[in-house]
Each structure stands twice: as structure tokens, then as C-alpha cells.
């Protein structure tokens, strides 16, 4: 089934929204305000792109390597005399043009990380959160406390809450353990909320305290 919807008129104007809060078993538990300065920002594709690119580059280990002519094992013997053989001069069997020789300018082990201004990183997170909010795929849960620490229970909970599986931020150790064998579910502490993980998953589930901390974190001035 193909589901289509359009982004609501007025999205990105920075308007506060009120969303319901659920308990983990799906009962309504009041509501909470999503400040528009974080959850209703224009969906800047370029900013999201930059942050994701930065994250992915930073995560690369960069363990690619070929052997250069100095690293290929073998003799350093001169292949034949410089003069008198009637053939070309050859000094080294490991030169790049030789079969079995080293690679010229091959990949080396290096970091792929590059810089990205903190303001852009922060804006990216706001864009990602706004995207989830605009889709209505941001679900606030008051707490996971009291839930049976079983993957089966977690699966049922997530299906009830989302109709789908998503990323849950703000989870504690038990939540993480309960969800770690579920495919397509990622549990992160509040401080670990990041653009790539949010955009990768269909739904974002946040605990109420995680949401408060997240808002406080995104409102705090950027340390220089």
C-alpha cells in the first residue's frame, strides 16, 4: 500500500505544538508542548545532508591500505647491470609499473573526519526533529519504568505505540537490553540523539524526561 501525505501548510514557522503523552502500554497520560524553535523548523535538506555526511565521515575507520613500493616485501637487488645488456634500465622489481610491484598513490589509513560548525550540527538536529514532528512520527512516552524487561513485551509496546518500529531515544539500560534483538530498533540515551539515527528510522519515541533534557540541551548556548 502506498501512503501519501503532504507536509502541512504552516510547517516551519516555529510554532509550538502540543502532543499527547502516552504510557508505555498506550494509555493517554496528558500532553506535552513541543517548542517550535526546535520542533517546527524549516526542513532544510542541505543542513540535514551536511550533518549526516559529517557523521558518516566521522564514523569511518579509514582502514584502507595498499602497499607502496617501499612496503612490498622483496629484494632491493638491482635487476641487471645499468649498462651493456642492451635492454632497458631496471633498478627495482617493486616499482609500480612492475607485476607484483607496489601501488602508486594508493589508499592509506587515515581519518575521514572533517569539521562542521556546531551551529550547523545543532540546526541539523532541530531539522531532523522537525521532520519527525511534521510527519507526526514523534511519540512521547511518559516512562518505560515498570515495563516487563522482555523483548516480547518491548515489541508489543512498540507496535502498539507506533504501528511500526522506530527509534527510541531516552531509554535506560533495561529498555536497551529489551530492544537490542529487535531489527530496525535503536535505543539511544538522550545525549546520543543524532540526525542520522533519527532520519534512518521511521518513528522517534522519546520519554518525557528525555524530551525535557533534549530541549534544555538544544537551548543551551553553544560553548566556544
Amino acid at each position: 500500500m502506498r501512503v501519501r501525505w503532504t507536509i502541512a501548510e504552516g510547517q516551519g514557522r516555529g510554532e509550538d505544538a502540543v502532543v499527547p503523552v502516552y504510557s508505555f502500554d498506550g494509555e493517554a497520560r496528558g500532553s506535552v508542548e513541543l517548542p517550535g524553535r526546535i520542533f517546527d523548523q524549516p526542513l532544510r535538506v542541505d543542513v540535514a545532508h551536511r550533518v549526516v555526511r559529517w557523521q558518516r565521515a566521522k564514523a569511518r575507520k579509514g582502514l584502507h591500505k595498499t602497499k607502496s613500493r617501499g612496503e612490498v616485501a622483496g629484494s632491493t637487488r638491482k635487476v641487471r647491470p645499468q649498462k651493456g645488456s642492451g635492454r632497458a634500465r631496471v633498478g627495482n622489481l617493486k616499482a609500480p609499473q612492475m607485476r607484483g610491484g607496489g601501488t602508486a598513490h594508493g589508499p592509506v589509513v587515515r581519518s575521514h573526519a572533517h569539521a562542521l560548525p556546531k551551529k550547523v550540527r545543532r540546526m541539523g538536529l532541530k531539522v531532523a526533529l522537525s521532520a519527525k514532528a511534521a510527519e507526526g512520527k514523534l511519540i512521547v512516552v511518559d516512562s518505560f519504568a515498570g515495563m516487563e524487561p522482555k523483548t516480547r513485551a518491548m515489541k508489543a509496546t512498540l507496535e502498539r505505540l507506533t504501528g511500526d518500529l522506530g527509534l527510541a531515544a531516552g531509554g535506560d539500560e533495561l529498555v536497551r537490553m529489551s530492544a537490542r534483538n529487535l531489527p530496525h530498533v535503536e535505543v539511544l540515551p538522550q545525549i546520543g540523539a543524532n540526525v542520522y539515527s533519527i532520519l534512518r528510522r521511521r518513528t522517534l519515541i522519546v520519554t518525557k524526561s528525555g524530551l525535557e533534557q533534549l530541549i534544555a540541551r538544544l537551548d543551551a548556548p553553544i560553548k566556544r
Binding site: 502506498r2 501512503v3 501525505w5 503532504t6 502541512a8 510547517q11 542541505d46 519527525k132
Partner: peptide, 17 residues
């Protein structure tokens, strides 16, 4: 480069962004 209001989103394309 903004997914502005009114943009049509196919669900199975992975969402708004």
C-alpha cells in the same frame, strides 16, 4: 533545498527527510 509545506511525501520513500 527545503521540503516546504505542501510537498507530497510517499511513505515508502522514507519520510519527509
Amino acid at each position: 533545498v527545503v521540503r516546504g509545506p505542501g510537498t507530497v511525501i510517499e511513505h515508502d520513500t522514507g519520510g519527509v527527510l
